[in-house]
Design a binder for these strands. Sequence first.
DNA 1: TTGAGAATCCGTATTTTCCCGGAGGCCGCC
DNA 2: GGCGGCCTCCGGGAAAATACGGATTCTCAA
Lengths: 215, 215
Amino acid sequence: MNPQIKIAIADDHPIAVNGIQMMLSAQPAMEIVATYTTGKALLEGLMQQQPDVLLLDILFPDYSGNELAAMISKQYPGVRMVVLTSLDAPTMVKSMLHHGCLAYLLKGTDQPTLIKAIQSAYRGVEFIEPSLKEHLMLSVLKPQKNGSTVPYTLTNREDEVLQLIVMGDTTQQIADKLSISARTAETHRLALLKKLYAKNSAELVGIALRLGLAK
Amino acid sequence: MNPQIKIAIADDHPIAVNGIQMMLSAQPAMEIVATYTTGKALLEGLMQQQPDVLLLDILFPDYSGNELAAMISKQYPGVRMVVLTSLDAPTMVKSMLHHGCLAYLLKGTDQPTLIKAIQSAYRGVEFIEPSLKEHLMLSVLKPQKNGSTVPYTLTNREDEVLQLIVMGDTTQQIADKLSISARTAETHRLALLKKLYAKNSAELVGIALRLGLAK
DNA sequence: TTGAGAATCCGTATTTTCCCGGAGGCCGCC
DNA sequence: GGCGGCCTCCGGGAAAATACGGATTCTCAA
């Protein structure tokens, strides 16, 4: 008999937390040891107790899934992370996988898939929702035709610039607020356009909001 | 003793359906008589049996919540609809309420609020998630601060132009796609900037997405 | 130590956006 | 009929953004 898999759930929606709990309630080999509805609670809870598998949403009021995944994979490499979210953006999938997550599921997933993903993650095996795989393949092939592989992770500065762009600031205003030259602010914006495959700032804002990089 | 409230749940995410079921499982006065994960299944199910209260999501693979709400309120006026979704766009709230929904909740809602909303709807009383009410007030008040009452309603053309801007098209590209002169396309964009109080197209996209004017 | 990536800065040229204006035709409503 | 709203078109000019280039520091990790 295998030992029970200790599972923690982090999702800002109580409904989702309940739903996941219910889906796993009939599994004797799995035990839900904690649930969190904020990023802060999750980080504090991990200090007390580390589950085998962490089901992680991406959108929290206080932290982004990117930050959380990066922090957790560093501090608690023993915790296997399974992303469970409604964002089906290829860049987000890539980003979370790069940050050490082993599986990526959509909220629309069914019980068998969820269980399979948890078991795979527990064994250290990657698991990507089948319907997402096609999207991923497409998005991997597309960018590469331009030559260099561009993994999408924003630097601190780029993120700051992005927030100001979303707020409608011009390059000059951004430069003033960050105390850098307009030229530098521009460089950062252009880097953002390339990383997120946006043709201009308007599209950039749209992509950033959909990816949860800004609100 | 009151009779049981018959409840149906329509949500394309099995997780959410389970979560809602669990939240209501401890309520003896409520009975879940059906659950649906597609718009088609919902419409077919309603022909067989009408619940007192229908918990309705907005995003379905086959139908939009708008369509569903309009159809259901016409054909089954006895079914009280409660919107339960993760979209917190004021325009969407208004739209669903106009289509006959009695309550509007976010997926992040807790058990007491959900129960209160269902009870209110059952009695025919409107119920809006408290956190949403502020947003609604703001979106109604803001336009008025400039004196003349400017309800932000976009014309058909403006909406078409907006969608293309969100997709990252330039004025010239928009002009080509809509078969109008670049000057006209620009006029429409400038009108959008004024109506939504955006300083530039980037901010415009941000505002439009937050208002639910585009996705 | 070497190297990669982040952050900073610069030049030039072209395209696009933004801000002033103004104007004519069409349609629906009072 | 008139009036307002919508859609269309236009000029001119300033400001900003985008597309090419290239360069120097600094840090952190292999």
